[in-house]
Design a protein around this nucleic acid. Structure first.
Length: 395
RNA sequence: GGGGAGAUACCCAAGUGGCCAAAGGGGGCAGACUGUAAAUCUGUUGACAAAUGUCUUCGAAGGUUCAAAUCCUUCUCUCCCCA
């Protein structure tokens, strides 16, 4: 049944029979996961993969995390269809510090090995690199999905970007990976790793691919650069709110990939939804609650839940409102919005008022010329989510 | 080295002298509706200005013109074909 645990919720395993064989062998398997040190926050999408890796650990296998410091420095193409900026050692080091602690929130430290790929990639001589390069062909490297897209769109592809796949595959050779785990978008690299391992006389790794989790927009995959992510270190309130905002169609997928609910439970929730249970309540009681529970505590999850109801269902004020201290007694509403950070520019502030999105103590401000005069603490609200408490300067 | 195509706002993409702060889509924001920050619909999306308006912006720098994203020159970058 170990196999069943591993297979659950995966998108694809190549090849499955090899996986079964490897697991049955009883050997402590080395499960490779490449991590990117350029973005220092772990979000729920990446957590999907980490959580699967944790399951391997529960079965006694070794997690081998490859920090792509070398590949980060040469610039990773990573599907962004644009060459990624190359970063420095110092930045990587800084990112890795809190990155590790985030990862260990999910993984078991005892069974986790961190390796920097500069350890071996940095030592390759030109000769080594040429030899490595001879193991692949241009056509093969261009086959990679995002490469071929860019190629057909007549976009530039730098030579080092092609080499990236090669290096990443070499990582598998260097750490003698038995299994590599990651998102489906990594398929090409994973399979390439198999090929390279064979060339180096190793048993090829099995690739375990997890589905990509769509982000808050429900369209693109969750990614820091799209700004559609939920970070695992975000506050319970933020996390809860963001989970409430995912499109209804994604509820089941999120339940499967981001919560600890078992399959039967999820199935019954799916049926409830078909029977017309309001998706909102599912998000509230199941999804948002369960996820916050994992990364915070039961108490925090409860609080976030009631906080959400307070603000959105009962339309009451949230409990913790940041305050802004006024420096003058009378202030033009537009200026107040900009000064307090609720609007980035005066034009934007103007638009918000024109559209009826600005409220003072719950009363919509309609006049652009409105002068706010301080009498007592007042709540300034923009849209549904942004609140600020206006206080007077202390004497 | 030769020939051709191209660079437009957060992203994609239309626009070949004035009606262009620049179509359309995506994304963002706001409103309506809703037991949701979902779905749907509507509005909005360079800055400044109470406002007719003003300023900055279509790869960069110059030029032509009353008027340039649009024409000319030079430059930078990218792609394709040939060698």
């Amino acid at each position: 049944m170990d196999i069943e645990i591993i297979k659950k919720n995966t998108a694809e395993i190549v090849p499955e029979n090899e996986l079964i064989k490897k697991i049955k062998s009883g050997k402590k398997l080395r499960v490779k996961l490449g991590i990117d040190p350029t973005s220092p926050d772990i979000h729920l999408g990446f957590a999907v993969v980490l959580r699967k890796l944790r399951e391997f650990q529960k079965l006694g296998h070794q997690a081998v995390l490859i920090v792509g410091d070398f590949t980060a420095k040469i610039g990773d193409p990573s599907g962004k269809s644009k060459t990624r900026p190359q970063i420095t050692n110092a930045e990587i080091e800084k990112n890795m510090e809190n990155y590790k602690s985030q990862i260990l929130k999910i993984l078991d430290e005892e069974l986790t090995e961190f390796r920097y790929n500069s350890e071996w990639l940095g030592k390759l001589s030109s000769e080594d690199i040429i030899k490595l390069a001879s193991k692949s062909t241009v056509a093969q490297l261009l086959e990679r999905d995002d490469m071929s897209k860019r190629y057909h769109k007549n976009e530039p592809i730098a030579l080092h970007e092609l080499l990236y796949s090669l290096f990443q595959a070499y990582d598998s050779v260097a750490v003698k990976a038995d299994i590599e785990i990651g998102g489906t978008d990594q398929k090409f690299n994973f399979l390439f790793g198999r090929q390279l391992q064979r060339e180096f006389g190793q048993a090829p790794q099995v690739t375990v691919m997890m589905p990509l989790l769509e982000g808050l927009d429900g369209v693109r995959k969750m990614s820091k650069s799209y700004g559609n992510y939920i970070g695992i270190t975000e506050s319970p309130k933020e996390m809860f709110g963001k989970l409430m905002s995912i499109p209804d169609d994604l509820i089941i997928k999120y339940l499967k990939l981001t919560t600890n609910l078992d399959e039967d439970k999820i199935d019954s929730i799916e049926n409830e939804m078909k029977d017309g249970v309001n998706p909102m309540s599912i998000k509230l009681q199941r999804l948002a609650y369960e996820v916050v529970l994992i990364y915070h505590s039961q108490e925090e999850a409860r609080k976030a839940w009631s906080g959400f109801l307070q603000v959105f269902s009962k339309k009451e004020l949230p409990t913790n409102i940041p305050s802004y201290t006024l420096t003058e007694k009378k202030i033009w509403i537009i200026k107040l919005l900009v000064d307090s950070g609720l609007a980035p520019t005066r034009s934007e502030a103007r638009r918000l008022i024109e559209q009826g999105g600005v409220k003072l103590n719950g009363i919509t401000v309609k006049d652009i010329k409105f002068e706010f005069e301080f009498k007592k603490e007042t709540i300034l609200q923009v849209g549904k989510r942004k609140f600020i408490k206006i206080c007077a300067k202390e004497k």
